[in-house]
């Protein structure tokens, strides 16, 4: 069975190595592409956009995801299984379906604007899509189910008896929340936050479909260099930088997971 493992390695490794190879071999062998990319204004702008959007959407998703996870954790097992559907179905839903739905919901003639028009009895056409708002809504919708699962796992892992003990000792719900629930779920929260942050760094579909021209992220820049500019060396160099960023943030996650095992 070890051949299977070897085969897997040979499927996985070459494409990744090929990106490194292309990024440094024009020909000739040089780091010129990195120099050009790192000094270009477009790249720097996209890099900061990427970091800002990834941070904003991860934190927002964590907040929403924690509320949902807490609600699920407090339900009796049977009802929780049913409510899990409400999280799992969006989890399994194609990102394209979500993007399509949000263009319909957030568009100039979309559901939100229609409702607002009806309430204020005036034609409201707020720009909610193809800008930062649309992008954040789409990213959040994508990330919340991803963060609910690890947080829920760590909330469910808290021994019921600890809650009972805290309660018998006289603690009221808010104190129990801050002194038991939050600290004991921190590992799951931390892992969940890191993993959705890493995932949002590489987001491609959502910015392409729901973001405006100023909201494009590094993945979209890679696609741009690959498809429009046809400069594969720079596309590869940007990919390597993106890969490096992901590694920096994924490393603590991997360490944490290993310690848990």
């Amino acid at each position: 069975m070890s051949p299977a493992v070897l085969a897997v390695i040979f499927i996985v490794l070459p494409p990744l190595l090929y990106v490194f190879y292309t990024s440094v071999y024009g020909p000739p062998l040089s780091l010129a592409a990195y120099g050009e990319v790192l000094t270009s204004k477009l790249f720097r702008q996209t890099l900061s956009t990427t970091l800002i959007i990834a941070s904003l959407s991860s934190l927002l998703s964590l907040l929403l995801g924690f509320v949902v996870a807490l609600h699920l954790a407090r339900q009796p097992a049977r009802r929780r299984a049913i409510l899990m559907l409400l999280v799992l179905l969006p989890f399994w839903t194609s990102i394209l379906v979500k993007c399509f739905a949000f263009t319909v919901i957030l568009g100039r003639e979309g559901i939100i604007n229609n409702i607002l028009s009806w309430i204020f009895d005036a034609k409201v056409q707020l720009p909610l899509v193809l800008n930062l708002v649309g992008l954040l809504v789409g990213m959040t919708s994508f990330l919340v189910p991803l963060v609910v699962l690890p947080v829920l796992a760590s909330l469910v892992a808290i021994d019921e008896a600890i809650y009972r003990a805290a309660s018998i000792m006289g603690a009221k719900p808010p104190r129990i929340f801050w002194t038991v629930t939050v600290p004991m779920s921190l590992p799951g929260v931390f892992a969940g936050l890191l993993s959705i942050f890493v995932m949002s760094l590489g987001a491609f579909v959502v910015p392409a479909l729901l973001g405006g021209p100023q909201d494009q992220m590094l993945s979209n820049l890679v696609d741009f260099y690959n498809r429009e500019v046809l400069d594969w060396q720079k596309a590869s160099a940007i990919s390597v930088v993106l890969f490096g960023m992901v590694l920096v943030f994924a490393a603590p996650l991997a360490l944490w997971r290993r310690r848990k095992v």
């Binding site: 070459p14 494409p15 990744l16 190595l17 090929y18 990106v19 890493v198 760094l201 590489g202 491609f204 590094l218 993945s219 890679v222 696609d223 690959n226 594969w232 596309a235 590869s236 990919s239 390597v240 993106l242 890969f243 992901v246 994924a250």
Partner: peptide, 11 residues
Amino acid sequence: IVPIIVIGLGL
């Protein structure tokens, strides 16, 4: 873990 875009480009 690697962004899919990187894998896509590599492939």
